[in-house]
């Protein structure tokens, strides 16, 4: 190989080719996606007066997403549902439909993830798990999911002496739980734990999109 201009051109165009083909063209195709109503009229316009999806997450949930990012939850949990028939995501109730590009357009940081050491969380807010469950699960996963390999996030909680009446937001341990605090003490979530649980509850895929209707 002696023709150096040719070598340089080849090196340049090889990467320029995929940069154009994958990055720029997906940006052209997806970069202008906007919120829509669940159904559109025959001209492809949004129905007047109906809710636009995906929803904007409430402020506390946004903060919770930041906690999710800081703790590195993405390394064990995905946020994407594969279509029915490809994997068992829908059968496992990880979501009523496949997630599509439009579901993520409001996110400054997209957390699709690549590893399912734990279950997918795209629709975790739509599962029958309430705030109390989430707090106990974060405090110590063994309480709600014995045998789980998820780490306890007890450092997001504060164990303190009960001063007068127990706090309303204290964790509600199951009776005789080996993980309950000593008598006279209670475990309360910090603001970060509250935010993280709020984020969990905000993750829902319970709406249809024109290109991804939920099958009845």
């Amino acid at each position: 190989m002696k023709n150096l201009p040719l070598l340089f051109c080849g090196i340049f165009f090889a990467l320029a080719f995929s940069f154009t083909g994958l990055i720029l063209s997906s940006n052209i195709q997806l970069g202008s996606l906007t919120q829509t109503t669940e159904m559109q009229d025959e001209n492809g316009n949004n129905m007047e007066g109906e809710t636009l999806y995906p929803l904007t997450a409430p402020g506390l949930a946004q903060q919770g997403k930041q906690v999710y990012i800081e703790m590195g939850c993405i390394y064990c949990h995905t946020q994407q549902v594969r279509r029915a028939g490809f994997g068992a995501d829908v059968e496992r109730n990880w979501g009523p439909r496949a997630s599509v590009a439009r579901d993520y357009i409001l996110q400054d940081r997209v957390l699709l993830g690549t590893m399912r050491t734990g279950p997918d969380l795209m629709h975790v807010g739509g599962r029958p798990l309430n705030k109390d469950w989430h707090h106990l699960h974060l405090y110590n996963p063994q309480i709600t999911s014995p045998g789980s390999t998820m780490a306890p996030f007890a450092f997001l909680y504060e164990t303190r002496e009960i001063d007068g009446a127990p706090s309303a937001n204290a964790l509600k341990f199951p009776p005789n739980s080996e993980y309950s605090p000593e008598a006279g003490y209670e475990v309360v979530p910090t603001r970060r734990a509250d935010a993280l649980v709020e984020y969990m509850l905000s993750l829902k895929l319970d709406y249809s999109l024109p290109e991804a209707p939920i099958a009845e």
Binding site: L22, I23, S26, N27, L30, G31, S32, L33, A101, R102, D103, Y104, I105, L106, Q107, D108, R109, V110, L112
Partner: peptide, 10 residues
């Protein structure tokens, strides 16, 4: 940040 999953493709 690019819009949505364009980030993931990148």
């Amino acid at each position: 940040p690019a819009r949505g999953v364009v980030q993931s493709v990148t």
